[in-house]
Design a protein around this nucleic acid. Structure first.
Lengths: 183, 183
DNA sequence: TTGTAATTTCAAGAATTATTGAAAATTATA
DNA sequence: TATAATTTTCAATAATTCTTGAAATTACAA
């Protein structure tokens, strides 16, 4: 691996964590390398710096593109494909959250919705369906909230986050004024 | 698999999704079964209903306990171990979030903190460190916020979520009054 | 077009992870 | 303490996923 100790450490860490995040080691490493790189890299740059096969890099880049975590860029007078991560870490977070929802949450929501339409056949199924309803309501609430909040300007989102639990004061006030959206 | 079609569907889905959540198929299935079960189940119940080996169930239950997603219970006059998921889905969500943070976020925060203490050796490292700082700040902000909010009463949390982006009104108001915690 | 550079696909082997039955260990209680 | 019930561990193998070099495909420039 052709990196300074500091950068190697970072890249290796992302490789290791990759498996916990649902991508393999090489995908994690490629992402990490692109994230800290001062300029876009082409596949051969990545091969050279990470010491993995060209085909592996090709597959890994495809995977990262499918997550919309790296974008393809072209440099003038060079026909090779270059890759870069978005500059704005808020945008990265948003993309990651959207993709995770699409892959890890939405299929479950669909299944639950479908299951809740069935007529329970006995007491056990009735109980199971009640549990599924609880799960569905929670996930629905969380994802709806997240989808709404995510659409805020990064600056507003940042302020909201920094405010933290202080917002509860306002939530209390809103409740007293009967202004909360539901219930 | 010894389940009604409705329940089997649910259990199989969790098995499939398991790999995306970072657990294997059997762990996902065991969790799903316990989640919808009207009463706690022992290992042999699980073996019978899911048709997997006793040892696999033992390993899967250990894994779920390490996630604090199932708890061990004992029935009077029965020495076998029974297992159940918490009743409150909010509690389940909270546990899941805490464990995910511990396993998937905290190690990265540590690494970033350590990397940011190093003296950059050249321009490239300086840029890399700047990127790591951006990442660190974002993750720190998100996890701190989440940790705070998570400690709220479920009822308050639910109200907050249902309010959604409406809170931004109050955030605006707070800013105008110079009351926001920082900056 | 044709030739070359660049990228992707593929099939094989390597590595990792999951699953199992059998044996061992643990636990409760007679 | 001995026994029987229960749970865990382990080592073998099955299944899956990853990695690779070579071949095929695609994109582009002359």
């Amino acid at each position: 691996m052709n990196l300074t100790p500091l950068n190697e450490r970072f890249v290796l860490h992302f490789g290791e964590m990759g498996s916990r995040w649902g991508v393999n080691r090489t995908v994690g490493q490629i992402y990490a390398l692109l994230f800290i790189s001062p300029q876009p890299l082409n596949a051969d740059d990545i091969v050279e710096q990470l010491g993995m096969s060209r085909s592996n890099v090709s597959i890994g880049l495809k995977e990262l593109q499918s997550w919309r975590l790296v974008r393809l860029v072209h440099l003038p007078g060079d026909r090779r494909d270059y890759f870069a991560t978005p500059d704005d870490v808020w945008e990265i977070f948003r993309t990651l959250a959207e993709e995770k929802r699409k892959r890890e949450v939405d299929p479950t929501l669909s299944l639950l919705r479908e299951a809740l339409l069935q007529e329970p056949q006995d007491a056990a199924e009735e109980h199971a369906q009640r549990r599924m309803r609880e799960m569905h309501e929670l996930i629905e609430l969380l994802t709806t909230w997240f989808g709404d909040v995510q659409r805020l300007e990064p600056a507003m989102l940042e302020r909201l986050l920094k405010l933290g639990t202080q917002v509860t004061r306002f939530v209390d006030a809103a409740s007293r004024l009967g202004r909360s959206k539901e219930d």
